[in-house]
Design a binder for these strands. Structure first.
Length: 589
RNA sequence: GCAUCCAUAGCUCAGCUGGAUAGAGCAACGGUUUUCUAAACCGUAGGUCAUAGGUUCGAAUCCUAUUGGGUGUACCA
């Protein structure tokens, strides 16, 4: 496209004797209803031409046809100059760039980025909200990798605190030494079960205290169970052996359970951090802030920062008794992560209910003069809601991650079997295929929506397998693979003199945008952008596939080779792009 | 109250830094298989881009206000 921009710049210079910047040149795809492939919007140029849009477009059109070999003809519609570009330009572009094995890959850019995602609590199993987080985090990490970043995926596990003590206490009281083995339950589900039991019993206590005349607030504080849980937390912090060993045991159950879910989701981490190791961090940072005068101390000894000038509030960073709050830890953890990895950028994949927290966190670090603070980003995403409202673990109104995955695989099996195309596949391949398709549908469903938008999930309406879906793209890939193998395809460039169908040039143009899309999606931290692009590619390929006569039987060898090349590049783009989204594409289905 | 995000077809969503008559999928209706995979393709129908102003040659896109919804505004994490 650069040849065109330069030519237009030269044209403006020659026609109107004006030097203009590139930003004046606005090139876009020609709309389907007009002739041509590329369109120049001339409105920004009329300032310099001092002529009407139509006259300017004609001037430029004539100039380009005369001086630029690739431009064969033009037409003008209002202020739009539509250009027909020579076939050989597209053929050359295809042969030289798209067919190159390195097409769509980026060289290392020397930048490091950390992506923190998942960050589960160890008192309950993962649900649909976590699934969105995990898929998003993984995909963004892969997207950055594809752009040449050196990426570290980290998981900061919230493995301590009052919520875990609740599960522990309930297990102690009502668990009868139940284990995942004895209960035949995944460890995270077993621990989650006791979290729910705690809540039920706790509520009972609150009710009876209220009947005795206490207010709701007082009852919540005075219930024996919550007091016991609080005592357990104190015992944990003071290193009580019994409590610690119970904590270790139950956490290990949970981790075993999480590992299974992570494996099924296909996500992974380069490093785990645990809050039990980091919860005391940050006090040094508070000291530092006091010395620098960024923080101030109130009479009771609590430490604050005043952010009112930045449109925020006063924010506590250390309690009067010297203990930490959430943001204290995060200040310390941010410093530690930077010390560990020395990264240029750090992404926190966390739900949008923490927008305010991260705004404050980043602002504080900036005020503390941390040079790395401007590389911090909160990748905020919307909640996943059910038609009935918000998911709540304590009340059991959640879509469980493991259940959902299992359901998706079952649905994939049913749909695949109903089509009857895989009956002769080996059993193992079939199982793997159902898993690929089920997960592909789920992942694509969650990733195709812009992260910041909230997502409504209706469990009664199953996730689609047709149209703008993961399986559609997987199917397109499998179809191409089958075509290539039937044709005994080997890659080889073709001559550039043959005629191209409109759909073929369209496909070349769309495919050639793959690197640009990868770059734009990474810049926006948006797997959704990539998803939608891949869908466009698959759709256009299917149109092409239906339009041309059977390629395998094509007698013109150059024609046949070109169409196979085109199919092959399409398959390559689909596979590479889907892989960034964490979705595998089958060879056949 | 204040802050912040969202609002596009019946439903789920695209629409990049403002560009032509706002696009897909699902659902509905009709069609395509003696030819490479019909999880596909083609067509019909479906819109006051929440509302009202403003900026501009040009606004779904930018600005302001209003309405509706989400989230936050804890010495919880």
């Amino acid at each position: 496209m650069n040849f065109l921009i330069n030519a237009v710049l030269k044209g403006i210079k020659q026609l109107y004797n004006e030097d203009v910047t590139e930003s004046v040149i606005n090139i876009q795809d020609t709309r389907k209803e007009f002739e041509g492939q590329l369109t120049i919007v001339v409105f920004p140029i009329i300032k310099y031409s001092k002529k009407s849009p139509e006259a300017t477009a004609s001037d430029l059109g004539e100039y380009l046809v005369e001086h630029v070999e690739e431009v064969v003809s033009f037409n003008v519609v209002k202020g739009f100059l539509n250009l027909s570009i020579a076939n050989h330009y597209w053929s050359d572009l295809f042969n030289n760039e798209l067919l190159d094995p390195t097409f769509g890959t980026f060289k290392p850019n020397g930048k490091r980025v950390m992506v923190e995602y998942s960050s589960p609590n160890t008192n309950k199993p993962l649900h649909l909200g976590h699934v969105r987080n995990n898929l998003l985090g993984y995909a963004v990490a892969e997207l950055l990798k594809a752009n040449g970043y050196e990426v570290y995926k980290v998981n900061l596990v919230n493995d301590r605190g009052i919520h875990i003590c609740k599960s522990m206490l309930a297990w102690q009281k009502w668990g009868n030494n139940e284990t995942p083995e004895s209960a035949c339950l995944k460890g995270d589900h077993l621990v989650g079960k006791y979290y729910v039991i705690f809540d039920k019993e706790y509520k009972k206590e609150i009710e009876s205290l209220k009947q005795e005349g206490q207010t709701e607030e007082a009852a919540k504080k005075n219930a024996p169970l919550i007091k016991e849980a609080q005592k357990m937390l104190v015992d944990w912090e003071s290193g009580n052996k019994e409590v610690i060993s119970l904590w270790e045991k139950m956490n290990s159950w949970v981790y075993a359970g999480f590992d299974v879910t992570y494996k099924n989701l296909g996500v992974d981490f380069d490093k785990y951090y645990y809050e039990s190791n980091t919860y005391l961090l940050g006090k040094g940072t508070v000291e530092e802030g006091l010395e620098k005068g960024v923080f101030f101390k109130k009479e009771d000894g609590s430490v604050w920062i005043d952010l009112t000038e930045d449109g925020l509030d006063q924010k506590l960073v250390l309690r009067a008794d010297g203990t930490s709050v959430y943001i204290t830890q995060d200040l310390g953890t941010a410093q530690m992560k930077y010390d560990d990895f020395n990264m240029d950028q750090s992404l926190y994949v966390v739900g949008n209910e923490q927008d305010y927290h991260f705004k404050v966190l980043f602002l504080i670090l900036e005020k503390l003069g941390k040079t790395w603070a401007n590389g911090l980003r909160h990748l905020s995403y919307g909640m996943v809601d059910l038609p009935s409202g918000k998911m709540k673990s304590r009340e059991g109104t959640v879509v469980d991650a493991d259940d959902l995955i299992a359901e998706m695989v079952v649905t994939a099996r049913q749909k695949t079997e109903a089509l009857g195309k895989v009956n002769n596949f080996p059993e193992e391949e079939k199982e793997n295929l159902y898993y690929q398709i089920g997960l592909g549908a789920l992942k694509y469903f969650l990733l195709k929506v812009e992260p910041k938008k909230r997502l409504l999930f209706d469990p009664s309406e199953s996730i689609d397998f047709q149209g703008n879906t993961g399986p559609f793209i997987q199917y397109t890939h499998a179809r191409i693979k089958s075509l290539l193998s039937k044709a005994n395809y080997t890659k080889q460039p073709t001559v550039n003199t043959m005629d191209l169908l409109i759909t073929e040039t369209d496909l070349i143009i769309l495919l050639s945008k793959y690197p640009i899309e990868i770059e734009a999606a990474a810049k926006a931290y948006s797997p959704a952008m990539l998803s939608n692009y891949l869908y466009e590619v698959a759709k256009l390929f299917n149109k092409f596939y239906h339009e041309v006569p059977p390629i395998v039987k094509e007698e013109d060898n150059q024609q046949k080779q070109f169409r196979l090349n085109l199919s092959s590049v399409t398959a390559h783009v689909l596979k590479a792009g889907m892989s960034i989204l964490g979705i595998t594409v089958p060879e056949r289905m």
